[in-house]
Design a protein around this nucleic acid. Structure first.
Lengths: 137, 137
DNA sequence: TCCTAACTTGGACTTTGTCCAAGTCAACAC
DNA sequence: GTGTTGACTTGGACAAAGTCCAAGTTAGGA
């Protein structure tokens, strides 16, 4: 993730300790954290970091395309640091666990022009749903 | 949508005026409303209906499979009355407009067993993203 | 070392959704 | 038709997630 810090610096970012810590948290565990979870982990390294800064920084990382926002459940947004390899998500309906998955083929190919209603379609987010081994009855 | 009221009655629902109004709102315009939008429209027909009842009723309709919950943006959940024909959604990144679309093929087929991590995968929600004709530059 | 625009802070505020005790009423039995 | 009762509704308090802002701090160039 030092790459990330490099890229951010190259884009004219001021590298504050707060931004560094947020980047480290996202890099550290490759999971899908909510903003509050990022904040809780960031506080462990930098106790005075504020919620507002975490929200700001996450928003900026998303705008730069360095982090993806995932909305799988209509509750808190989750942040996915794996922005540089195309992937989709598999979510357990029982416990909410999320895995990155890589379906084959191009999902856009399944949407015929007649079903595009004049939109310029640029991407597709797929959420596969099911039960993980631990939640299966 | 009188079918819907029939089905609900058959399931032992008490048909209150509040539930009737919520059902009518969902039936009336085939769009994807938030709970507050449903409430606003319901109030026009039944001024004293409460937010809590709208939330309760929407939740019940979802649990019964009569209405789908759509989470396209990590903000308010939207409610889709078109639950009886499988479909996906196309969302405008500019204005947030949502259309129902019908891609061909089975999205689950694109997810090989090796990418399922032991999950019992039961479905896939696809959100196609792009710009609608009005928002295209 | 200084300066300044960019960044951070904490707290107030908004939006979205949940919960609950008290009151109301649809549907059944008669 | 009337009475009864448990299911339903209400309003308001509460919680969770996110935004906004004025005031204070600081990274990095001059």
């Amino acid at each position: 993730m030092s790459d990330l810090l490099e890229r951010l610096r190259a884009r004219g970012w001021r590298l504050t300790s707060q931004r560094r810590v947020v980047a480290e948290v996202l890099d550290g565990e490759h999971v899908h954290l909510t903003a509050d979870e990022v904040h809780a982990r960031a506080v462990a390294h930098l106790p005075e970091i504020s919620r507002a800064t975490v929200y700001n920084t996450l928003g900026e990382l998303v705008a730069l395309g360095e982090v993806l926002e995932v909305a799988t459940d209509g509750r808190a947004r989750r942040y996915d640091p794996n922005a540089h390899r195309a992937h989709q998500h598999l979510v357990c309906s029982g416990c909410g666990a999320i895995r990155d998955v890589h379906p084959h083929g191009d999902p856009l190919a399944a949407l015929p022009p007649a079903e595009r209603f004049g939109f310029t379609v640029s991407g597709a987010d797929i959420t596969y749903r099911g039960l993980c081994p631990d939640c299966r009855p």
